[in-house]
Design a protein around this nucleic acid. Structure first.
Length: 622
DNA sequence: GCATCATGCG
DNA sequence: TAACTGCATGATGCG
């Protein structure tokens, strides 16, 4: 870095004349700005970093806006040739720290969970998070896919936003994250400007939320406090036994070789088994297997469903199914997870996304910890690699039948409410009702079918879908559905009404009045319109469950903070399940307390129940 | 770089 | 006439 220039090149003083943006290069300037920030009720904050991974990213600069069009950028790490001398980051952060950590100084940002992570890397605990426009805009419209700052500016700010997206300057792909190589002049439109835009957007967006008292409650009492909880979960991470995964990897590789050998022997052909295209040729041209189903693009499908059916008549499909199952486990989990272990913490740090889904559920990525296998034996072995640190155990607590309970509550169906009130096995109760048989006489197969119907109901059941699920005729499936709705007429009316509401007002709501817009509900395309109708049924149920577990996370975290401290840590959320790392000395206490708190997260017309178990690893905790 | 296909979870 | 909710991800292959 060149150390000669003392001030901003003169040409920079003149740009953006309208917008009073300032690049801070002198100590005295920063001190003056800190006073300005202190004088404001709320200010916006925006960090620029050199990496997308929050555990690895370093600050390149930080910007603040104090009112519309008045913003500044403090660069520290632009090291292109002839870059002006910038302030020492340690000095800058030491000056900003009291302000950033002061909970009485209100901040607004865009995805502040990220800023929390970045600042935490410099020993700063960001407090006073009052607003986050990413989350606010999602509360207003969770269906919109355009939540990035530029799109929001286009939508909410009258003037055409002149901010340039980073990609345009820094380029995508391998050339990415070279922000430090960009001249200070070039940074202005999206450093200080972004802080400005955030503040402007906040003024617009929050006004709309304030207008609706129930949306405001979800925003202020659930989503904003949840930012910090998710930050903590991500930063804590989860411990992985990579030696165990390596062992599985070795075993699976051997089995895959055997399978390859057998498959090539049968087909008399060496080909890429993972290529659906090549597999289509082998199965349906060389082997002449019957085409059972076609993909949307009209090619013969090689899906699991098809291969299962073909496996009844030929030996090859079964081998391919096993091959697929193993390669999926291997590449997606067994080999992926060890790669994701952070060198410093020895743990995996996922990202939870608060604004990814329309229903209000969280999603997880890099890696996705919400789709770790559980349903088959081999897959479950992967869960054995999710372990606790010394002297701790893994505790898992999950809601039982939360979505069906919510459906019972929202619909008010007497029969379903009754079944839950009496603590019945809900699938057996359903089977008994549909078949008009005593519950004691329900077979496993009958219970299994009833279970599929119950899940189907939550998804906005169709005879086609149910038939496919149960491998029965569409006629038979329709009979089941008819009998269900006859027995649970409250559910039928509830669903009919949801379709009507969706059509009439264009959105549906959760129990806590989170809104889910359904723009396709009036689509001329019947397929899309029908899909929107199913969403109208599913969204209030799934969304209410999401609201409830979020409330539970807040309750549990509060208890951890004030009572359990370092003895309990919340690690993961998997839609209806919370996973903790608990010190062995308080296992029973923690288990009971957490169950109580989770069960108290919402008051329904029927009890909200949980199941809990602890063990050495995530598999044992189930 | 992007679409397609398949599949993991609740 | 396509066809059950909500996601994330990897491999492949076209362009």
């Amino acid at each position: 870095m060149k150390k000669t220039n003392l001030s901003l090149p003169s040409h920079l003083e003149t740009i953006n004349k309208d917008d009073k943006y300032k690049i801070i290069l002198a100590e005295q300037e920063l001190i003056q700005w800190i006073e300005k920030l202190k004088a404001k009720k709320i200010f916006s904050i925006y960090t620029k970093t050199n990496h997308s991974n929050y555990m690895l990213a370093n600050l390149i600069g930080i910007s603040f806006a104090i009112e519309e069009k008045i913003a500044m950028y403090i660069p520290f790490a632009h090291d292109y040739q002839d870059a002006p001398k910038q302030l020492n980051y340690k000095w800058v952060l030491s000056k900003l720290k009291p302000l950033l950590e002061d909970p009485t100084r209100s901040k607004v940002g865009y995805n502040l969970k990220y800023d929390l992570h970045i600042l935490a890397r410099y020993g700063i605990q960001l407090r006073g998070i009052q607003h986050d426009i990413m989350i606010a805009s999602h509360i207003l419209n969770s269906t919109s896919r355009k939540n990035d700052i530029v799109s929001l500016a286009v939508d909410f700010l009258e003037h055409q936003c002149q901010c340039i997206s980073l990609e345009k300057i820094a380029r995508k792909g391998k050339q990415q994250f070279k922000f430090n190589q960009i001249t200070l002049e070039e940074t202005l439109p999206y450093s200080a400007k972004y802080a400005d835009i955030i503040l402007q957007l906040h003024n617009k967006i929050f006004k709309k939320i304030e207008h609706d008292s129930e949306l405001k409650l979800i925003y202020k009492n659930i989503e904003i406090p949840l930012i910090f909880i998710l930050f903590k979960m991500e930063r804590t991470g989860v411990l992985i036994d990579d030696a165990l995964l390596n062992l599985h990897s070795y075993k699976i590789s051997n089995r895959l070789q055997e399978l390859e050998f057998k498959i090539y022997k049968i087909t008399n052909n060496r080909f890429n088994i993972n290529s659906t295209k090549q597999l289509q040729t082998i199965l349906f041209e060389s082997m002449n297997f019957p085409i059972i189903k076609k993909t949307p693009s009209g090619k013969p499908s090689t899906s699991e469903e098809v291969l299962q059916e073909l496996a009844l008549y030929y030996p090859l499909p079964k081998l391919i199914l096993e091959y697929r199952n193993l390669t999926k486990l291997k590449s997606n989990y067994i080999e992926k997870l060890p790669k994701m272990i952070n060198m410093n913490t020895g743990r995996i740090h996922t990202s939870y996304h608060q604004v990814m889904t329309t229903t209000g559920r969280l999603s997880s990525s890099d890696p996705n910890l919400q789709n770790i296998p559980i349903r088959n034996k081999l897959g479950r072995r992967i869960r054995k690699a999710f372990i606790a640190k010394d002297n701790y155990k893994i505790l898992s607590v999950d809601y039982s039948q939360i979505e069906l309970r919510i459906m019972a509550h929202l619909s008010g169906d007497k029969n379903l409410l009754n079944a839950f009130q009496q603590g019945k096995d809900i699938h057996i109760a359903t089977a008994a009702e549909i078949l008009s048989v005593n519950a004691k006489k329900i077979s496993n197969e009958q219970r299994y079918r009833a279970k599929a119907i119950n899940f189907g109901l939550i998804y906005g059941i169709s005879a086609f879908g149910l038939a496919k699920q149960l491998n029965i005729s569409q006629y038979e499936a329709q009979q089941y559905i008819n009998r269900y709705f006859k027995r649970y007429s409250g559910i039928f009316l509830y669903m009919e009404n949801l379709r009507k509401i969706a059509y009439k007002q264009g959105f549906v709501e959760t129990l806590f009045k989170r809104r889910i817009y359904l723009p396709e509900i009036k689509s001329k395309n019947k397929i899309r319109q029908k899909a929107a109708e199913r969403s109208a049924i599913n969204a209030p149920i799934q969304g209410t469950a999401a609201d409830i577990i979020k409330k539970a996370m807040l309750l549990v975290s509060e208890w951890i903070e004030f009572k359990a401290n370092d003895n309990v840590e919340l690690l993961m959320q998997v839609h209806d399940e919370l996973v903790f790392e608990v010190h062995k000395s308080i296992l029973e206490t923690a288990k009971n307390k957490i169950q109580k708190l989770m069960e108290s997260a919402a008051k329904l017309n029927i009890p909200l129940l949980t199941k809990a178990k602890y063990g050495d690893d995530w598999d044992q905790a189930h």
